[in-house]
């Protein structure tokens, strides 16, 4: 466990700068293969539309993974993440042309004992909040 951010250097309200992540159909195909989630709503437009979706949507877990990367890059160690949970509030729609953009930001919400903090994440795509109650508990240095 070698987080690079120091517990003493953050306060409740400390903001983690926003980052954007591009999501393309190719990412979803790779994610399907790597995760084993081959639900066709994540790669076949006709199936997505047949169940009432506007287009192919990203796996919720793909979006959650970007949030995990955001937090672990900030902390400096993926193993410093002790707890991570989200609710999927709105799908990330990924058109064939141009894909989608995911914007993730974070804020230190609480400071706990043992050098741990709770980070609240915000994730948006096309102006929609795609995650709610997205929180990670992280052990800092």
């Amino acid at each position: 466990m070698t987080a690079t951010v120091k517990y003493d250097d953050v306060e409740v309200g400390t903001e983690i700068p926003a980052r954007t992540f591009a999501v393309d159909r190719a990412n979803l195909v790779m994610y399907a293969g790597a995760s084993g989630d081959f639900n066709p709503i994540h790669w076949r437009e006709s199936t997505a539309r047949s169940v009432g979706l506007p287009d192919v949507i990203a796996h919720g877990m793909y979006t959650m993974a970007q949030g995990g990367r955001f937090v672990s890059d900030w902390a400096g160690d993926p193993g410093a993440v002790l707890d991570y949970g989200v609710r999927f509030s709105s799908p990330v729609v990924v058109p064939d042309e141009g894909g989608a953009t995911l914007e993730i930001s974070g804020k230190v919400e609480r400071k706990l004992d043992d050098n741990t903090v709770v980070v609240a994440l915000t994730a948006r795509s096309e102006g929609q909040k795609v995650l709610t109650r997205a929180k990670a508990t992280v052990r800092l240095a």
Binding site: M1, T2, F21, N27, M30, Y31, G33, A34, S35, Y62, A65, Q66, G68, R69, S72, D73, D77, P78, G79
Partner: peptide
Amino acid sequence: DAIGDPNPVFRDREAAKAAGY
């Protein structure tokens, strides 16, 4: 690779060991 995370601790044993794993 699929989630697009380039962190070497996911790929390189020496990097993981240097991080304490």
